[in-house]
Design a protein around this nucleic acid. Structure first.
Ligand SMILES: [Mn+2]
Ligand SMILES: [Mn+2]
Ligand SMILES: [Mn+2]
Ligand SMILES: [Mn+2]
Lengths: 217, 217
DNA sequence: ATATATTTTTAGGCAAATCTAAAAATAAAT
DNA sequence: ATTTATTTTTAGATTTGCCTAAAAATATAT
């Protein structure tokens, strides 16, 4: 498989998590940062290889084979992110771009040895689940902080937006995976929150709260 | 730089170590496993980018810039080989192909962090020198076992041929980097040797002896 | 229901990297 | 010094992945 094919499969996979129907051509183009016509071309090729199901004008979905391939790419991406953070001291906002390259390295032995070396982690540095060697994903039940009830104690377990910008903001506010979070007041005017993060009171906007995953305790 | 351009630079670099004049088109084609016409095309592109010096029919050589680029690719290749052997328990005959892919990952931070993580190694698992971040190569004085004098004690420090085939043969004979080697008899008929490897007597052919580097002690 | 807007596909082209076959230059041999 | 052989370059195609612009299909609005 080429890098380009792998990137398309991954894009379709990510989009299909939020889209029960077929994934839209335009959505893929946006994610891959290319044009709709290019997407149509590639989709035809992937369909030819039985990696996606495709009917003209009806969007596209992964076949069982395509789904497994996509999960293996995601697995590699997230394992490399763990490696970069745990072993090479990268911060969580620096790993994505490098992992985008590393995810295409093609060696089953490499990735399984890396998995073992890292102690078979189940989540990446952003709290996203890492598929195991069979493609199985242990799903954690987590909710957005914006949906958390008042005075309900919780732990930060992930981010929805993992842009460098957002992650750096969290660093500055000393919010990290594992931080305890509790909402002590909701402002109805702008849906901002006053929260306790590791016991420290702070004010966060609704936008922030809508991009933080928490697990109630 | 594209993967292909990097592979050409690396090939020219390796060939230029044994060739004081310009490197031949055909030699590059052979190493890259492509055709002379393809090489000519690529050389023109590299010359355009000032990475090589090129005059029609006169072969090609690296510019200072091209040389540094080539060394950085070699650096990455060999550091990844160390990583695979030291951290992921690959054997020395399994690392080359994976390193061929990993060497193209493009992140200065990654490679320098990896270097530190590995403890700034100066040689790869085959005894080849690893250029430092500035491209400097510490050269060790080593000679081929076939050139070693009778009864001169030495240590195995590298292999000239690093094909999987040869490396597996060495494993079978329990010859490894660090093994002590001494020639106790030379057979003039076929230039084969009777040697002591870590004290064990064995017979090795001239071909083997011509592919093992040793350092006298 | 018809007109308008949006999405998707097709048609035709381009750049990178490769190839084969032919031509040109260089090297080797008589 | 010519001829012959080898090496290298050019010419012309091919494949992959992408693009723009136009056409076709689908969705939305009146
Ligand atoms: Mn990522
Ligand atoms: Mn991640
Ligand atoms: Mn190697
Ligand atoms: Mn090596």
């Amino acid at each position: 498989m080429t890098y380009s094919e792998e990137n398309y499969l991954k894009a379709i996979y990510h989009l299909s998590l939020f889209q029960k129907k077929g994934v839209n051509t335009n959505a893929i183009a946006k994610m891959i940062d290319s044009k709709a016509s290019s997407v149509t071309d590639m989709i035809k090729k992937l369909a030819e290889k039985n990696l996606v199901e495709y009917q003209k004008y009806q969007g596209v979905s992964l076949t069982a084979e395509g789904l497994l391939e996509a999960k293996m790419i995601v697995r590699k991406h997230r394992l490399w992110e763990v490696f970069l953070v745990e072993k090479l001291d990268f911060s969580w906002d620096e790993v994505h771009d490098v992992a985008e390259e590393l995810e295409h390295i093609n060696s089953e032995k490499l990735i399984n040895k890396l998995d073992a070396f890292l102690g078979f982690p189940t989540e990446d540095p952003h709290g996203d689940p890492i598929p195991n060697a069979k493609g199985e994903i242990k799903k954690m039940d987590k909710k957005l902080l914006s949906e958390l009830k008042l005075n309900q104690k919780s732990i930060c377990v992930g981010v929805k937006d993992s842009s460098s910008n957002f992650l750096k903001y969290l660093d500055k506010q000393q919010i990290a995976l594992g931080s305890t979070i509790e909402i002590i007041e909701k402002e109805s005017f702008d849906a901002s929150l006053i929260v306790l993060v590791n016991g420290n009171e702070m004010n966060i906007s609704n936008k922030i709260a809508s991009n933080l995953y928490v697990k109630t305790v």
